[in-house]
Amino acid sequence: MKKSILFAAASFLFSAFSLNAQSKTWDFSNDTANWPINAGIGNTPMVKDGLGLFPISTNTNFAAITNSSQVSFSDGYVATGNRLQTNGGGAVSTGTYHPTQRYFFIEVSGPVTFKAWYKAGSTGAVRTTFVSNGYATLYGSAATSPAASPADTAILTATIPTAGTFYVYTDAAINFYKMEVSGANVVTTLNSNQLSAIDSSVKVSANIFTNGSDLHIANLSGNTKVNVYTANGALVKTLETKSDVNFGLKTGLYIVNVQTDKGVKSQKVLIK
């Protein structure tokens, strides 16, 4: 079964404040104006300089900026200042690539390339960074290696093929020195409504996918309201259900909004 899944926050469709750019760089090593030394962001998700940060509820040290000695990377990039620490891994929901803690989220309006420079948080340890659409698709991953030169470092390059929100997370503690998104579809501003939608979607278990011309909504856990919108914001389908459901749609791009007592989840789907 071929499943086409495009994940995005609901308010992405309606935001009038997002700006497209050719590229966006988060230079944790040298940009002390946006990324000053700090002990972490606490327990509340936030957007900082266009980069979404989702912490962990049990401590406050995710995204701490600390001093670092000079680190050289295989492509010639040299980090001479600070580093951003995850201080742990981003556990994923069972059977998915959806991180539940200590992750980054970035919104784009079309295909882009993502690149990150990082080092293992423990000397000699093999640590991996992942990039996904937040559900069934892994866009890329790269592991550090103590045998590599320079040791313990890695550079991850991943192609993001579609508009929406993508996620960056690790399997253990990793220190990031720089992240970069390049292409004509970089969205440089996330707003608070988008952040709320992404935050609450973590709590909603519904799986949304397509099979041919049919839209499927599965893994429902109670009373669920479903609204389906066109890319222009027109409501084309609404229903309430307690069990899995599927129905046909015409060819096109849609926003599927699922509301439960645990929160709201929205996802872009493409019917071909």
Rank of each mutant, 00 (worst) to 15 (best):
S57L: 06
T94D: 08
L84M: 15
N30D: 11
T58Y: 11
F105E: 10
A136V: 09
Y97P: 05
V71W: 12
G95K: 11
P55K: 01
A147E: 12
A16T: 13
G140F: 03
L84V: 09
G52L: 07
T96P: 02
T137F: 08
A10K: 13
A63S: 15
A116H: 06
T129L: 07
S69T: 15
L84P: 10
T66H: 09
N61W: 15
F105M: 12
S11P: 03
P36E: 12
T153M: 06
K48V: 00
Y77N: 03
S72N: 12
R127H: 13
S68L: 08
D75R: 06
Y139T: 06
S74Y: 01
G110P: 07
T137A: 14
T100D: 06
S122R: 05
V131D: 02
N30P: 00
G50N: 01
Q22A: 09
G88A: 02
N82P: 02
G52F: 08
S145L: 01
F105C: 13
S93H: 11
N20E: 12
P99N: 12
T60K: 15
G76N: 09
F104V: 11
A10W: 04
V78R: 05
A91V: 14
A154W: 07
N67M: 10
T66A: 14
G95P: 04
K48Q: 06
N34D: 11
A154N: 15
P146G: 02
R102M: 05
S149H: 05
G89L: 03
N30I: 08
I155N: 03
K119V: 08
A154Q: 13
S11A: 07
V92L: 05
W26N: 04
F12A: 13
T153R: 03
G88C: 09
Y139N: 03
P146I: 07
N59H: 13
N59Q: 09
T86C: 06
A91E: 08
A16H: 08
A10M: 04
R127N: 14
